[in-house]
Amino acid sequence: MSEHASREASLPDDEAGLLAVRDLDAGYGDLQVLSGVDLDVRDGEYVTIVGPNGAGKSTVMKSVFGLTTYMGGEIRFRDEPIHELAPEQIIHEGIGYVPQNENVFAGLSVRENLEMGAYILDELPQDRLRDVYDRFPILEERESQTAGSLSGGQQQMLAMGRALMLDPGLLMLDEPSAGLAPDLVDEMFDRIDRINDDGTSVLMVEQNAKEALRRCDRGYVLANGQNSYMDDGDALLDDEEVRQEFLGG
């Protein structure tokens, strides 16, 4: 392992896998947030993006999902360019996205929330529903309760469950630990580990950088809308510069 974490952001082309972002410029309206961002997620990989507030972490995810203003660069999923697709088409391609806040339909029941996750299919996929219920048994127990009446942790599970209804190849999670009680955070990360172990690639943005880097395969450090460091999670954790600059020593 190198002494310093790599400043090279992109993987060699022959290693590029599921998601490949190259030299991405994006923002909101006239405001450019990202400049020249590179990012890769290989099949089955667990990747996290960490960095200070306002670094553009969530914007990377939103850009992949077609929710920002595209300003240049390349976003390829399974080797197909997706930057011109609408969110519902991107879902169709196999990307699931769990936004950070208000990520359940509070007035709908738990089951209805899950049904909405499979809206683009003609029939509700019973096997997927079964799988989500097996993964999060509390959701089956509370099936007919409104989502708004669930606790924060349960809402987070519901939001993930909804994104898993289409069995996506890549699951993008925006700050899954935000707002959770400390004792629930570990449990949440364990669940994400299991989703990844079962074969779904995960791209996660996390404020809780140390824990996220410990869990992931590979991490990106983003600052001021640009790549700063990229390496294995443990390597980033061990790196003196990264620790000084981004992890509070």
């Binding site: 969110p87 519902e88 879902i91 339909f105 509070a106 709908l108 209805e112």
Partner: peptide, 20 residues
């Protein structure tokens, strides 16, 4: 009908959930 209720609840979430 459920999609209509979902949109009334949270339009941007409906969009990222794949509701047309």
């Amino acid at each position: 009908g459920k999609a209509m209720r979902a949109m009334a609840d949270n339009r941007s979430l409906a969009q990222v959930t794949g509701i047309p």
